[in-house]
């Protein structure tokens, strides 16, 4: 929680094009990527954007396919805010904010056809790989969407698929190659306060944000998902210019942070 006066001040500064930490409106904080942060996960990554920290882990299990996709693996994404990630979080069942984060990140990966799910079929109609993508917000200093997306994409690229024995049981410590990744996708977010569009808010700036627009950007420059979030709005004429900025930044980030 910050005071009303502080909020007014931050908002006024942003509307004048200035930020508390002297960044430009479109400037990100330092981004640090680290892969392999949990030995028991098939793949994992930690992303820090400034002081915001997200870890993502991938677990793989042999499961049954869905009836309508008998020859495809299954992707299940969820997100959790760790109770210590901010003073606002209460432990308990998933909140709608956690659900939305998980679903927005999932949509980028799924719609962008990041993983060749058909290659994760083991026995058609009977056994396929289920990929659990789990996102944990460790410390919330704003812009958890971008951090989560970078963490998930890096965790997916970190995956080593477990080897299976003749009974389709996982053989501990033996691996069978990487995930069949066809595309890289990052979901990036533009934030709006008053009439100003800016990027990568810290937690204090996020308190005054009216609306956000997240776009999934694929390595071939395609947009693969969109979501306007929060209570406020973007003007009709702002959408396309914002998407162009997001696309440019997305391609830059894929080159820099998803290798």
């Amino acid at each position: 929680m910050i005071t009303h006066t502080a909020m007014e001040f931050i908002k006024k500064k942003l509307c004048e094009g200035e930020r508390l930490d002297d960044r430009k409106l479109k400037e990100y904080r330092e981004i640090v990527i680290e892969r392999g942060v949990g030995e028991n996960a098939e793949g994992s990554a930690r992303v820090k954007i400034g002081q915001t920290e997200v870890i993502a882990g991938i677990k793989m299990q042999v499961g049954e396919p869905f009836k309508d996709t008998p020859n495809e693996g299954i992707l299940i994404t969820s997100a959790e805010f760790m109770p210590f990630s901010s003073s606002e979080v209460e432990p308990g069942p998933p909140t709608v904010d956690e659900i939305e984060l998980g679903r927005v990140i999932d949509r980028g990966i799924r719609e962008g056809k990041v993983i060749d799910l058909e290659k994760l079929c083991i026995v058609e109609g009977e056994k396929v790989w289920t990929i659990f993508v789990d996102i944990y917000l460790v410390n919330d200093d704003g812009n958890m969407y971008d951090a989560s997306s970078l963490a998930v994409m890096n965790a997916l690229m970190d995956v080593k698929i477990p080897k299976l024995d003749e009974n389709y049981e996982i053989i501990e410590g033996e691996f069978n190659g990487k995930l069949p990744i066809r595309h890289k996708v990052v979901s990036l977010t533009a934030y709006k306060v008053g009439n100003v569009i800016f990027y990568d808010p810290n937690a204090k700036e996020e308190e005054v944000v009216d609306a956000r627009l997240t776009a999934g950007i694929r390595d071939d420059g395609k947009i693969v998902s969109l979501q306007k979030g929060m209570e406020g709005s973007f003007k009709y004429d702002e959408i396309i210019p914002t998407l162009r900025e997001l696309k440019e930044r997305g391609l830059e980030f894929i080159g820099k942070y998803v290798q």
Binding site: I223, V224, Q227, S233, F234, K235, I239
Partner: peptide
């Protein structure tokens, strides 16, 4: 002219 719902699924050019 405020856009208050915007989502998209699928692969598109701007």
């Amino acid at each position: 002219k405020e856009v208050v719902l915007l989502q998209m699924d699928g692969i598109a050019d701007i």
